[in-house]
Write a protein that binds this DNA or RNA. Structure first.
Lengths: 153, 153
DNA sequence: TTCCTTGCAAACGATTTGCATTGGA
DNA sequence: TCCAATGCAAATCGTTTGCAAGGAA
């Protein structure tokens, strides 16, 4: 059984729509376009990168507002790259648990999956470490650093 | 055998001094004070937090320049917190390989160690993942997220 | 009508930089 | 003496916000 990208994205949009509906947040064209671009991106994107893609359609300030609304609604996750610039991607409940592979040269970020057994072990470990430090563990992030193909040559 | 904190810090400062000397970068009072504060901090600190500590001694702009010089010299590592604000700490070759425990409520960051056997496994895994994605692995970061004691109550 | 959303411009906060001055080797 | 380091003020850059206009319910 094979789920192609388009169908996957459609399903994702539908789930986003449901969540927004439940929260009385409108799923406007701009919001939909933003989610769609991010769903296809394969890694977190900056506001400026999104602005390049959505070009004339959306002024930067509106894009920022869109991103904030979607983040507050739990639709997007925000992280920060090596330069401290915000990067957005569909939230974990939409994309599934995953991590980031970062090129230390050019900063490109790509989503990656990690073997479930290792995830399990990391979770267990993380739990213990947090407890020892007096924290209640709520999650973890693994960032793999490397040099991508184009920077390597 | 027990190495106390002061001696440890002194040793760290000495190693920093050697590195800076080799690179013809002066180890001025401000730079020394900055390294000293960070060596004792137990986690990465923002420029503003450092400025609070070094108060009158150093204007913010000079502190930023100091941080940049030390980072360029490989003495400090820079990361970014959940708000995207830069945080500095002594580089890995000074502090040893470690990770961060972050409070998702207040943003406090604390250094943590991870069991060597898990580190080994993670490194191996990371290596493989990077290779599969066409990257050359250069390192990794694990960030443990939790709620600290004071935010929990 | 009543909110929510959008655009534009101005404001913000973190960080950087130009320039004149100071300080060390 | 001479280049590096510093202080201050102004500039930058990513991001946020006030306010008036446009749209959907």
């Amino acid at each position: 059984m094979y789920t192609d990208a388009v169908e996957y994205v459609t399903d994702l949009e539908q789930r986003v729509g449901e969540r927004l509906g439940a929260r009385r947040v409108r799923f406007t064209d701009t919001r939909r376009a933003t989610v769609r671009v991010l769903a296809r991106a394969g890694g977190p994107r900056t506001a400026s990168e999104l602005h390049d893609t959505l070009r004339d359609r959306v002024p930067l300030s509106s894009l920022y507002r869109t991103l904030t609304v979607l983040e507050d609604a739990g639709v997007l996750d925000r992280s920060h790259d090596a330069q401290g610039v915000a990067r957005y991607e569909p939230a974990e409940w939409l994309l599934g648990h995953h991590h980031h592979l970062v090129c230390v040269e050019c900063g490109a970020v790509k989503d990656i999956q990690i073997a479930p057994q290792v995830e399990t072990e990391v979770s267990r470990l993380v739990e213990r470490i947090a407890t020892e430090a007096g924290y209640t563990a709520t999650g973890h992030k693994i960032e793999v650093e490397g040099i991508c193909r184009s920077c390597a040559r």
